[in-house]
Design a protein around this nucleic acid. Structure first.
Lengths: 241, 241
DNA sequence: TGCCGCGATCTGTGATCACAGTTAGACTGT
DNA sequence: ACAGTCTAACTGTGATCACAGATCGCGGCA
């Protein structure tokens, strides 16, 4: 092809140079995202089994990308493969639930603190927006549990992202991946918790504290939120052991 | 085969029942362990490149298990694949180093606290043992950096395991995987830090505080240790940006 | 000398095949 | 009626093949 446009641009034009390198997103990555969303939103119940081939067929891809995605989830114990070679969402014992909750209190509590200290302007704007979205769902006389779950997740992670510590956000995502199935699957089973639980109040306190730069207040609000949800789950008696 | 021993044991004997289900360890898992060890002990320098095929050949396995292991490490950013499809140990910018250090201070600091509170007898015994091992290496006139690195790691993780929170230990492993190449590669380059740095004193304080159940003291000792190592790394001026 | 083009080689990713191990169910012999 | 046996289908894991894209080196043109 001859050069029709400009006199020999050997250097890359600044207009092109500033678009940044486009990241390569593999099929396995996309399958992982898909499965992660299902787990975190509680659309897969604990004990739910799946097969690589059926997932591959459902998603219209080969078995290969599914293998990679599932392998990652198995590696961090968000899924498990039984000695029978069956893949399933892990069951949750009371002991494991309490362990995860303890770690969440520490890690997410710190994140809330940090978010209140070094809060980014752009994240703050999103915060109130997500809070309202959650409120709208909670007040809905016929609440869509899945939308409420999503709104709750987005509010929390807006706070976590405001820490400016992407590594920390990644860690918390891993925790939600493990606890999501229990937390949100039970929430969907009993949506009345949306109103009776203090979730909306905890969220209000949380957002207010972060906006005000009140680290201790933010931590307390978030801990209250986690503990409220945890005691609700424990009260349902669906945990093992 | 006829039954020579007992009258028709239709139930599984308790002697067999209590051995527990044996876990399936795949080749991919073993490759992952191998690579993880190399990263955490600083035997792979930042920027170091590798190819799936060469690793597979070195380890005497097919490319498949290597793919799985590398995919996991890439997923949590312990490795990265460039747009050129080249896999390498990520470079470390000053900003990223500080972010990782901030998260480590929070997470590992909490772990030290928790270890001092709920300390397990078995872990306590190991603690002093690992501390002595580290001391021995530090005092060695011709210290083997790799053994010192390993002793340091084992001491820290003995503390973390004493929390009784395996999830937390996993999180910290992920952090060490990311920061290990910088931390330990530089340590090997300048082993004099073993004596001049306050590492041995911090370790002494840490072990003493954990043994005494002094949560705040344990946290402080560990934070001092991390910050000491971090400021050493920053002073070497090998970080990017 | 400097620049461009072409081809051999190597890269990770995706698809397909092969296989050992497990499971479920029909069947058989007692 | 029941315990044991065998077969067919299905599981995840590992190996191999196929491929698009990137890199590097050699050669030729200006």
């Amino acid at each position: 092809m001859s050069n029709l446009s400009s006199p020999r641009p050997t250097k890359t034009p600044t207009a092109i140079a500033q678009i940044g390198r486009l990241e390569r997103v593999t099929l396995g990555e996309r399958v992982h995202t898909e499965l992660r969303e299902l787990l975190m939103s509680g659309e897969l119940a604990p004990g739910q089994r799946m097969s690589l081939r059926s997932v591959a067929e459902t998603l219209g891809v080969s078995m290969m990308p599914v293998r990679e995605a599932v392998a990652r989830l198995v590696a961090d114990q968000s899924l498990e493969v039984l000695p029978n070679r069956a893949v399933r969402v892990p069951l949750m014992t009371r002991a494991r639930f309490r362990e995860l909750t303890a770690v969440r209190l520490a890690v997410e509590g710190f994140a809330a603190e940090q978010a209140a200290r070094s809060r980014a302007e752009s994240d703050l704007a999103a915060l109130s927006q997500f809070e309202e979205a959650f409120l709208a769902e909670a007040r809905d006389p016929d609440p869509h549990a899945d939308r409420a779950v999503r709104a709750n997740k987005e509010l929390h992670f807006a706070v976590y992202r405001a820490t400016g510590l992407p590594t920390l956000v990644g860690i918390i995502e891993g925790l939600w991946l493990k606890i999501g199935p229990v937390l949100n699957f039970d929430l969907k089973a009993s949506p009345e918790r949306l109103r009776t639980g203090g979730a909306t109040e905890h969220h209000r306190h949380l957002v207010a504290a972060v906006n005000a730069g009140d680290a201790a207040g933010a931590r307390k609000a978030l801990i209250d939120d986690i503990e409220g949800a945890a005691s609700f789950i424990e009260s349902t008696g669906r945990l093992l052991d």
